[in-house]
């Protein structure tokens, strides 16, 4: 048996609820016992379109939160933006619908063994897994600050109950329709200079992750980011989801974001080479 995705199971969960929240849908699935192996950062790959669909590939969604309590047993929350055909299909499902899913997949955010000052940065619906992460960090005695950003207020995902797990929550929109005007990355340099942060966890568009990596560079702040690259299989067999990542010796190879990620060390991702091929052969 291999160690890759060793907790992954192919399951048939039922949609317990499906609610619209701003521009997103909050979907709850009863996934059963697999929740015990789901960690913040992991994702779920879902078959979309039903029996006679033309869509042959699974869609990957970050696990927003899991819960083991409640009458339903293990449940999982997903925050889905109905952007493409597949996610629109998922968002159109009625309560009681059964789906085909594989989870938990991919790497998870590393949790520090002793309490640290953590900054969680989310872009758009990328903030979804950060609330589950915040709860875990809080339970380990960490200070948790969260910055969320989006182009406009309706694209911010910040549920009421999620705010309980954070010490402070600041929101930035480019059009100023919610929170402060500007980009979520703007205040980070200041925080680092003040020594107010030890670890940054980020989740959102690649441009934002790349910007945070350059701000962090030269400091001893650890940056764990969940990358986004389009995936065909989600389980490491197709090689479509690769991004250039350096190893400890500085040698860059194309790593699969589905099994070597989605959570990666931001200082090792070669952001300037994303969408290109490293010059020298490995």
């Amino acid at each position: 048996m291999s160690a890759i995705n060793k907790f992954a199971e192919q399951i048939r969960p039922i949609v317990v609820s499906n609610k619209r929240v701003g521009q997103y849908h909050q979907i709850i699935l009863n996934v059963g016992d697999v929740v015990t192996n789901c960690r913040p950062g992991n994702f779920i790959a879902i078959n979309v379109g039903g029996e006679s669909t033309r869509m042959i590939l699974r869609r990957a969604f970050a696990i927003s939160r899991v819960s083991t309590s409640g009458v339903l047993g293990g449940t999982m929350e997903l925050i889905v933006a109905p952007h493409g055909q597949g996610s629109r299909w998922l968002c159109s499902l009625q309560e009681g619908a059964e789906i085909d899913a594989i989870t938990p997949l991919g790497s998870a955010f590393g949790i520090p063994t002793s309490p640290v000052n953590a900054l969680l940065v989310g872009g758009g619906y990328g903030s979804a897994p950060l609330f589950g992460l915040a709860e875990v960090l809080k339970s380990r005695g960490c200070r948790v600050d969260m910055y969320l950003g989006a182009s406009t207020g309706s694209k911010i995902y910040a549920p009421m109950e999620g705010k309980r797990a954070v010490n402070t929550l600041r929101i930035y929109t480019e059009d100023g329709s919610m929170g402060e005007i500007g980009r979520v990355t703007a205040p980070i340099a200041q925080l680092i200079a003040e020594g107010a942060v030890d670890v940054i966890y980020s989740c959102g568009p690649m441009g934002m992750l790349s910007a945070i990596s350059s701000i962090v560079k030269g400091s001893d702040v650890v940056h764990q980011c969940a990358v986004e690259e389009s995936m065909a299989c989600g389980v490491g067999i197709c090689m479509t989801c690769v991004i250039p990542v350096a190893d400890e010796f500085g040698v860059t190879t194309m790593k699969r974001s589905c099994i070597d990620g989605p959570v990666m060390d931001g200082s090792l991702v070669q952001w300037n080479l994303v969408g290109k091929i490293p010059e020298v052969t490995p």
Binding site: E229, C238, V242, V274, G275, I277, T281, P282
Partner: peptide, 8 residues
């Protein structure tokens, strides 16, 4: 390394 992304 293969080809650059997007590959699919």
């Amino acid at each position: 390394h293969g080809r650059p992304t997007p590959r699919m």
